[in-house]
Write a protein that binds this DNA or RNA. Sequence first.
DNA 1: TCTCATGTTGCAAACGTTTCCTTTATTATA
DNA 2: TATAATAAAGGAAACGTTTGCAACATGAGA
Lengths: 322, 322
Amino acid sequence: MVSIKDIAKQAGVSISTVSYALNGSPKVTKETSARILAIAKELNYIPSAAARSLKKQETKIIGIYLTNYSGAFYGQLLQGMMETLSENGYELIVCSGKESHRFLPERMIDGAIILDATYETKELLSHAERGHKLVVMDRRMDHPNISQVLLDNKAGATLAIDYLAEKGHRKICVVKGPDISFDARQRLEAVQKAVQRYSHIEYIEIDGDFNKQSGEEAGKKIHQDFTEPVGVFCLNDEMAIGMYNYFSRTNLRIGEDVHIIGFDNIEVSQYIQPRLATINYSKHKWGALASELLLNLIQKKQSPEHERINVSLIEGDSVRKR
Amino acid sequence: MVSIKDIAKQAGVSISTVSYALNGSPKVTKETSARILAIAKELNYIPSAAARSLKKQETKIIGIYLTNYSGAFYGQLLQGMMETLSENGYELIVCSGKESHRFLPERMIDGAIILDATYETKELLSHAERGHKLVVMDRRMDHPNISQVLLDNKAGATLAIDYLAEKGHRKICVVKGPDISFDARQRLEAVQKAVQRYSHIEYIEIDGDFNKQSGEEAGKKIHQDFTEPVGVFCLNDEMAIGMYNYFSRTNLRIGEDVHIIGFDNIEVSQYIQPRLATINYSKHKWGALASELLLNLIQKKQSPEHERINVSLIEGDSVRKR
DNA sequence: TCTCATGTTGCAAACGTTTCCTTTATTATA
DNA sequence: TATAATAAAGGAAACGTTTGCAACATGAGA
């Protein structure tokens, strides 16, 4: 591999001069600089990321931790992050491997954004304690090195229940998410609080894990116990899609017998028939904001911030007047 | 940051001994090793990735280059890769940023898997020329440092056309993909060859770019020119979904007036009504194989291999007998 | 002519590891 | 008891940068 040492030799200057020239420092005169640049290009020189980050103690890389890529909204989320980061000279890498949690403590990345419920809060805390900067999108954490930007799950869940109630539903069923998910817990909590406001509503809970499969199973359970039209709040769209799949094989009709509302407004939701009612929020903004807070923490050494992403109701023919 | 130097001082040994102990070398006696390990843990020592990779000239990280995450099958693909890689002590990072192509030449990663048509072949070639190892999944390349594993697009496209013909369709329309995509070009080529075998078939081409939007537009065009039932081969499922969306707002029925078959068998395809006929292949296997070939290139210094992923037809009610 | 400021370049340390090669201590063998 | 062989630990160079500081040259001002 050709290093600045080779360039220095070729140009008859010291390696420090080469380094300054390569970094566009005004300390070195135009002519020498040009000569050095030319030689560098000619020798096909490419800097060593390892050497640079060893010396500078930074990598200009941010990591985003995701549980599983299958989640249907990561596209826009990552897009939002990348834009903000690249404007500030940072690169984004998606970390998903078993051992990728090493990246932060080993200083392979300058900071991390967490959207991965399996990442232990204890571990995150110890990173922060070591001085690493974090943004969490999937839990609440209070620490001078951790910012957070969370969805307004409470408002979303309340909107969903109110929507069903407003449409005249008196039997409401919620398909829960996994306990490990902060969003799932918050949504469920808000649901329980919301239904209490409607004394006439019969309220049922069914287990779910945010995957399509569990949506199908929940659909089956609803089918078995079916006596009258029911409003179903699937705590995410993914499960709602699974439930669609189940009912497409039955004699019950969505929007007539079974009324479904989801959460997330993933892309598919607008393509299924009938259009899924759901709770929407800007994934792009969520990602952009998370990145921004992280950069604030890293660059401006600003104190941590706690932001919230607004949600809104999207109506759909999957929920009709009872 | 605490380094092996600190541990050495604390333990009263040299840094080389610490390094050996940390790496479990048999050169250092059990007792000292234990003592060193204990001190390392006590000091919360964590190795520096930069220092190690600078010295060892490897990172044990593989990069996968993707254009856009929105692509609906990346989940399984990445899963397949990660499994193979982590079994061999490698981590996977997803590189998507504007500047992330620097990762390979700057030796931030030990090798790369390419599934990103915007990555210039010329650039890939220059990497390979420098000695970097690559696997391409989206183009043909012949070089001692490049392996390739491609879909059998030709077989897939032929299956699709034959399926439509077999169902009695004599008017067949293909919605093309972007020119930049190797898969799109291969599929189109095979389509053109396949329809020639059916002299009675009226064949039409419509532009497309692999996104839902262009599927909708293609649907509109088909609607405008509609005179008789037509069989449509969308060169990927994504566009087929867009076309579903368009026709859901019209009086034409999919599987009756417009018969659609896609390519990729993305997850949603089984959840839309009617079930989309499509061409299937194992994304998991595709990813696993690509990783395996890359490791062969890197570790075993094996010569490059050229593999092909088989495809199969999935029937669906989106295509019925004419 | 001397001094001083200014501009250009070079020296060398440092970042944190790994690893080859010595040195020293210990034990076995003749 | 002398010597060789083995085991354990340390010294130091190397990986490829960045950067504070020193050195030197040049021209301006007194």
